[in-house]
């Protein structure tokens, strides 16, 4: 098993945190993991991204050019990273902010209105958690309970009051995938 994942979006959407949560969860499950952030020259409002590998083998290149999954939180990220998905790989699109359809026909595309769902739950900042829940449910790269265990590592000890809403968002994202899969059947 090796999942090579690119998380991408605007700075501030929490894409680095999404990647970190999966990295911690992978480590807690005894897998080999690596997390590499974007740190190059980016303009304000440009794309932030991180590369995460979760693997049974030693992690090779920390930089991902052939992704098994790509999560795009905004339109520029879709334009930039759709081509990075391997044939048969998965692409998760935040349709609340992306008005374009994926062009590829050889990949599985998941359309998640993450911001709309986050708004429904009462906090726009948890759109990334909705997306992450959907990603975990669709890929099963780590268990959802491990993801929840990883939250305090990333958000810090003083943020316990936010844990329940983050969990709620994760499960809503996961439910959406379950319903999508049922409809397909």
């Amino acid at each position: 098993m090796e999942e090579r994942i690119i998380f991408a979006g605007f700075g501030g959407q929490g894409v680095l945190s999404m990647g970190l949560i999966i990295t911690y969860a992978g480590m807690f499950e005894g897998k080999n993991v690596s997390w590499t952030p974007s740190y190059g020259p980016e303009m304000r409002g440009g794309t932030a991204f991180c590369n995460v590998t979760v693997s049974d083998e030693e992690v090779g290149s920390p930089v991902i050019t052939e992704a098994t999954s790509v999560i795009v939180m905004n339109r520029p990220s879709l334009d930039k990273y759709e081509s990075y998905v391997i044939s048969g790989g998965k692409l998760f699109i935040n349709t609340s902010l992306v008005d374009k359809k994926a062009e590829r026909k050889d990949i599985e595309v998941y359309e998640i209105p993450a911001n709309d769902i986050a708004n429904e739950l009462g906090n726009l900042k948890i759109a990334n958690m909705v997306m992450l829940g959907a990603f975990v449910e669709a890929t099963k790269v780590v268990k959802m309970e491990t993801v929840i265990k990883a939250l305090p590592e990333v958000f810090g000890k003083g943020k316990e009051h936010l844990m329940s809403i983050n969990e709620k968002a994760l499960y809503r994202g996961a439910e959406l995938i379950k319903s999508l899969i049922t409809t397909k059947k």
Partner: peptide, 10 residues
């Protein structure tokens, strides 16, 4: 190198 400096691993 910058990659090793910036990346996270256990």
């Amino acid at each position: 190198d910058g990659m090793l400096g910036q990346m996270m691993e256990p």
